[in-house]
Design a protein around this nucleic acid. Structure first.
Lengths: 338, 338
DNA sequence: CTGAAAGCGCTTACAG
DNA sequence: CTGAAAGCGCTTACAG
C-alpha cells in the first residue's frame, strides 16, 4: 500500500500507550510528571515502556516542551587539568539527573564564547554553566534573553539575581604571598601567563599584600599573555633570574609554570628553596612529586563543579537555591619548595 | 483574543518566508539544499534570514529530518592530554562544518560507554566518533542498528566496512624497544598502567621485540591496572629498582609515568641515562623540559582527530572515503634520557 | 524550479 | 485523575 509513511521504525510513546491500554498523553504523564496519574497506571505504563525498550525522543520532547535536557558547560580550556576536574564533577551530578552536559571550549576568547552560546542556546538548553563573568555584551544579552537558568563558576559576585559558585581569587593570591613573606622572603616575583580575569585577580592579591608589607616592586611582576605551559614556566624563571638576580621567591600563577620554573632552576643550579622559593597555584597532578615538592594553592574546582551543578539543578526545577553566591575555601599546600 | 498560543516568541522559518515573499518550504530549501532553488531566491531568503536574525531550531529539524547535527565523540579520559589534543582537532573540523561535537567520557569502562551510547543515539546524531574497538556486544549492536555513520579512532583494522584512523600501537611499542636495544640496553623493563587494549598492544610490541633479540624476561613487565599518573610512575620505578636491581632501562607506557619515574630516579640518586635509560610514550607537554629531557614516542593524535573528523564528514554527506582504514605514522623522539 | 499537505514524536492547555 | 485536539518548527514526498 502506497502509504506516505515517514516512519523511522522507532518505538514511540503511542506504542507504549497502546501496550499499556491508555492514551498517549497519560503515558507521557506516567513516565514523567508522575504526580497526577494513578499509581497503578504509572506502574502499568512503566512496565510497557520497559517491555518495548522505549527511549523518548529528545528532539520531539524539546520541540513540544520548548526545553531540552542539554546543559552547555563553557570552560576556557581542556589543557588545564583544573577544568577537567571541574567537568568531571559537573558530569557526575548532571548526568544521573537526566541532563546531558555539553562541553564547550572557549579558549579564553569572548568572541568564541559568544559563538558557542549562540549555537547552544538554539538547542533550547535546560540550563547553562559558564566560567567567570568576563564576556561580551552580546553574550550577556543572549544569556539574559534566553531565560535559561545559568550558574557562573570559579568566581563570585554579590550582584543580585546572579547565581555563582567560586572562591576568592584575590584572597588566594594574597594568601600565598603572605606565606612567602612569613618565610622571610622580600623580593617576591609574580610570574603569570594567559592573563585571564582570574589571573589578574590573583596578581592583584599579590600586589596588595606586598604593598601593605612595603615590599612591592612592579618590576618583579612578569605578566605574559601566552598560554600557560611547563616550557613557558622554564623561560620565565630564566628571564627572572637573569634580569632580576636579587629575587628570593617566585610565585607562579599556575602549577605548570611553577613546575617548569623548578626544572629550570635545577638546570641552572639554583637551589630551591635555599636561594629562591618557588610556589605555584591550583595544586595540579605531579606537583607533589617535584624536586623539591612544590608548594601550591589547592583550589576547590571539584567542589565548584559539584555545587554549581546542584545549584543549577535547583534552578532548573524551579526552586530557589538557599544562597545565590557560594564562596568556597581554597587551601594553602605548603611543601618543600618554599 | 483567547488564542491557544504556545508560541515561544522565536523567529521561525515562516517569518523568514513571509519577509522574503516565498513559501516556507522554499525558504527551507534556499537556506540549506540550495541547489534546486533559483539563485535570486536564495539570496532574497538569505537576506531575510539575516535581517530577522533567524536561527534554525535544531530540535524541529532533527524531528522532521530524523537526523540532528550532533556528533558524539567518545574518549576514555580527559585527564590524558592525548585525548584533549584529539578533541581539539575534531572540534576544529566539525564545528565549522555545522556539527556539534558532544564530548563523552567513558573512563575506559565499556559499561559506561554503552550507557552513553544509548543516551546519545536517542538524539539521532549525524555521526559518531569512538575510541578503539573494545566495547560491549550491546554497544556494537547499538552502533550498527542505529545506522549512524561511525569512525573509529586511535587503532586500525582491516575489517570490511569499518572506517578507522589510527596508528600501529604494536609497532610503536616495538620501535621504542628497538631503540633501547640499539643503545646497548639488554635488561629493559616495561611499566604500564590502565591496561587498556592499546596499552596491551604496545606491551605486545615490546615483548615480541625483546623475544626476537633473545632478551625477553617476563619478570621485567610491570603491568598495573591503576590509573596512569606521575605519582604512580614514581612508585613503579622505585619498585623496579628494588626488586630488579639489574635493569638498565625502563620503557614507560605513558609520559606521565615516565616523568614520575625520572623524578623518582633523581630522588634515589640513580643516574639517567647512565645507569638506567628511561623512555616514555605519547610525548606529552613537559617531557622536553625534564631533567634530562625525556625520550618518547610522539603519537599523531591531532592528525587522527583531524582525519577522523574529515572521514566522518564524508560519510555523513553520503560520500565514500577513499580509504576505509587510515594508518598514520608515529615518531620516535629521542632526547637525553635514553 | 516552486508550493500545499502531511507528518516527525512529543507536551500543553482545555475539558470533563 | 484521564483524554481529544492542537501545536511546537521544521522537512519529506508528491504534484505541478
Amino acid at each position: 500500500m502506497p502509504r506516505k509513511s515517514r516512519s523511522t521504525g522507532r518505538i514511540t510513546l503511542d506504542d507504549v500507550a497502546r501496550e499499556a491500554g491508555v492514551s498517549r498523553i497519560t503515558a507521557s504523564r506516567a513516565l514523567h510528571g508522575g504526580r497526577v496519574v494513578g499509581a497503578e497506571l504509572v506502574a502499568r505504563v512503566q512496565q510497557a515502556a520497559d517491555k518495548l525498550g522505549y527511549v523518548p525522543d529528545p528532539a520531539a520532547r524539546a520541540l513540544a516542551s520548548a526545553r531540552s535536557t542539554q546543559v552547555p558547560v563553557l570552560v576556557p580550556l581542556l589543557s588545564n587539568a583544573l577544568f577537567v576536574d571541574l567537568l568531571e564533577a559537573v558530569h557526575r551530578v548532571l548526568f544521573p539527573a537526566g541532563f546531558q552536559p555539553m562541553i564547550g571550549v572557549t579558549h579564553y576568547d569572548p568572541a568564541e564564547e559568544e559563538l558557542l552560546l549562540r549555537n547552544y542556546l538554539a538547542h533550547r538548553p535546560a540550563g547553562l554553566l559558564v566560567t567567570g563573568f568576563d564576556r561580551t555584551e552580546a553574550a550577556r544579552q543572549l544569556i539574559a534573553q534566553s531565560g535559561v537558568p545559568c550558574v557562573y563558576l570559579m568566581e563570585t559576585t554579590d550582584a543580585p539575581g546572579v547565581h555563582c559558585v567560586g572562591f576568592s581569587q584575590l584572597e588566594a593570591g594574597a594568601a600565598m604571598t603572605e606565606h612567602l613573606l612569613s618565610r622571610g622572603r622580600r623580593r617576591i616575583a609574580f610570574a603569570a601567563a594567559q592573563l585571564d580575569p582570574r589571573t589578574l585577580l590573583r596578581a592583584e592579591g599579590y600586589r596588595r599584600t606586598l604593598q601593605k608589607a612595603g615590599c612591592y616592586d612592579s618590576r618583579l611582576e612578569l605578566l605574559c599573555p601566552e598560554r600557560s605551559s611547563i616550557a613557558l614556566g622554564a623561560r620565565l624563571l630564566e628571564e627572572l633570574v637573569s634580569t632580576r638576580p636579587d629575587i628570593d621567591a617566585v610565585f607562579f600563577n599556575n602549577d605548570d609554570l611553577a613546575q617548569g620554573g623548578l626544572l629550570a632552576a635545577h638546570r641552572l643550579g639554583i637551589k630551591v628553596p635555599e636561594r629562591i622559593a618557588i610556589a605555584g597555584f591550583n595544586d595540579l597532578a605531579g606537583s607533589d612529586q617535584m624536586l623539591p615538592p612544590l608548594s601550591s594553592v589547592h583550589t576547590p574546582r571539584a567542589e565548584i563543579g559539584d555545587q554549581g551543578a546542584r545549584t543549577l539543578l535547583q534552578l532548573m526545577s524551579g526552586q530557589t537555591p538557599a544562597q545565590a553566591s557560594i564562596e568556597l575555601a581554597f587551601q594553602l599546600v605548603i611543601r618543600d619548595s618554599s
